[in-house]
């Protein structure tokens, strides 16, 4: 029993996925681990609400090294690019969805160093050294993650748009280990909105994985 707890995001929180190499980039025809990317979102002059001085400000480029679904990537991005946009627009990992883009809906949920976060409210440049797992990284080849299997079995979705975020959030919830009852599962899944209303079946899927 120590009198100090260190919650640093250190290596012990990370998975052992470092050597797993997945084929997303090669499928996209992008060779190598280092990508030099043109800045996103550069505005035309006069497009700003703030006047000429802001409109003239150039984009700033940030370089970041991070591991995504087991593969280490070096990205050079406009500093404004969120983790969500880097995943979707730069790496073609479109499983992670953009819903509200303001941290309210949970569609963008991914796992960062094993924890569920909103990728829309994280700058890619803040992820130096992080291990990111997206919905594309949960399955092992053709073998689905148990949470994916459970969502299929219990019909935990209708349109499917929120589902990648729901599944990543559910994986995080099980790992956190704080939800013991249906009410606690509902409370701790409240960061993921489902407009189709598949909530009962999502709870059933999570319980199945918890009890497996």
């Amino acid at each position: 029993m120590g009198d100090m707890t260190d919650y640093s995001p250190d290596e012990s929180n990370k998975s052992k996925l470092g050597t797993t190499r997945r084929g997303f980039l090669s499928q996209l025809g992008v060779a190598g681990a280092s990508l030099t990317l043109a800045p996103l979102l550069v505005r035309a002059a006069g497009d700003s609400q703030k006047g000429e001085d802001i409109a003239a400000a150039p984009a700033e480029i940030t370089s970041v090294s991070l591991t995504i679904n087991g593969k280490t990537q070096v990205l050079n991005l406009d500093s404004r690019v969120t983790l969500l946009d880097a995943l979707r627009e730069k790496l073609g990992l479109t499983g992670t969805k953009k819903g509200c883009d303001h941290g309210q809906c949970g569609a963008c949920t991914v796992l960062a160093d094993g924890r569920r976060i909103n990728s829309c409210l994280t700058l890619a440049g803040m992820c130096e050294g992080a291990e990111i797992v997206t919905i594309e990284g949960l399955a092992k080849g053709e073998q689905l993650h148990p949470m994916q299997e459970a969502f299929l079995k219990h019909d935990g979705f209708q349109c499917g748009y929120c589902t990648p975020g729901q599944i990543c959030s559910a994986v995080g919830l099980v790992k956190e280990g704080h939800a013991k009852t249906d009410a606690e599962i509902k409370e701790l899944m409240s960061g993921n909105i489902c407009r189709c209303g598949a909530y009962q079946n999502i709870v059933a899927a999570i319980k199945e994985v918890q009890n497996a």
Binding site: G103, R116, I117, N118, L188, S190, G191, N192
Partner: peptide, 9 residues
């Protein structure tokens, strides 16, 4: 306050 994802951040 907030959601589990936001509290993790």
């Amino acid at each position: 306050g907030a959601s589990p994802q936001l509290r993790n951040m």
